[in-house]
Amino acid sequence: MIIGLTGGIASGKSTVSIILTKLGLPVVDADKIARQVVEQGEPAYKEIVKYFGTEILDSHGNLNRKQLGTLIFSDPKEREVLNNIVHPAVRKKMIEQKDTYLQQGYHHIVLDIPLLFESKLTHMVEKTLLIYVDEKKQLERLIMRDHAGKEDAERRISSQMPLKDKVLLADGVIDNNGSLSKTKEQLVNILRAWNIPINEKT
């Protein structure tokens, strides 16, 4: 089974991803791949610099992710341009990694895709698993995690589909407002319900 893991910014998806790995499920991480495809020399990197200009680069010629992030989170059109450059490159590499795991004999693979619903990528997976937190907790976590101002954090959250809307689309939902043990318990129960074998020793 191919599982699509998703959530929202600062919802705790990375934590669940780590637990899944410990339970014996390989995770293909879209965020990690997104960083790889925009490294210097990569086709997506060249397209980004061509469109946005060299002012979004740091002194070493790498993408200044924070500066680029601020630009696209405040402008939906610019965000769409960036997504149209980066997303196809990310999808290609995700499929390659998934196929490698299948060749290695894995039967169940997790695709960690933050914008699974927004980017209409549910066709890539058989089940969708959403990590949910309420809006207040999401805002608090994002401000603490990124040392962001309240306004900046709110803008980043509002650039994504609200988690309460994603709940209606997901096959499985983990409420991550509580403790880590509660989150893991919910995850294990969902995997068992889907008949996915896990490493019980973890």
Score class of each variant (00 low, 15 high):
H60A: 09
H60P: 01
G61H: 00
G61N: 00
G61Y: 00
G61W: 00
N62S: 04
N62K: 08
L63S: 00
L63A: 01
N64W: 00
R65D: 01
R65K: 09
K66V: 05
Q67E: 07
L68S: 07
L68K: 06
G69K: 01
G69E: 03
T70W: 00
T70L: 03
T70C: 00
I72T: 08
F73E: 04
F73P: 04
F73I: 04
S74T: 13
S74W: 04
S74H: 09
S74I: 02
D75N: 14
D75R: 02
D75A: 03
P76C: 03
P76V: 09
P76M: 05
E78T: 00
R79C: 06
R79W: 02
E80I: 07
E80Q: 14
E80Y: 07
V81Y: 08
L82A: 02
L82Y: 05
N83C: 08
N84S: 10
N84Y: 01
N84E: 07
V86R: 03
V86T: 10
V86W: 07
V86H: 05
V86F: 05
P88H: 05
P88V: 05
A89M: 05
A89G: 02
V90K: 09
R91C: 08
K93H: 04
K93W: 02
I95M: 11
E96P: 05
Q97M: 13
Q97R: 13
K98Q: 13
K98H: 12
K98I: 15
D99A: 13
T100I: 11
T100G: 01
T100R: 09
Y101L: 13
Y101F: 15
L102C: 08
L102V: 14
Q103S: 15
Q103V: 07
Q104I: 08
Q104A: 08
Q104T: 07
G105E: 13
G105H: 11
G105I: 13
Y106C: 08
Y106F: 15
Y106H: 15
H108A: 12
I109F: 08
I109M: 05
I109H: 06
V110H: 03
V110F: 06
D112R: 06
D112I: 14
D112M: 11
D112Q: 10
I113Y: 12
I113E: 11
I113V: 15
I113L: 14
L115H: 11
L115E: 13
L116S: 10
L116A: 14
E118M: 12
E118P: 13
E118L: 11
E118F: 07
E118Y: 09
E118K: 09
E118G: 11
E118V: 08
S119F: 00
S119P: 00
K120H: 14
K120C: 09
K120S: 14
L121S: 14
M124K: 13
E126K: 14
E126I: 09
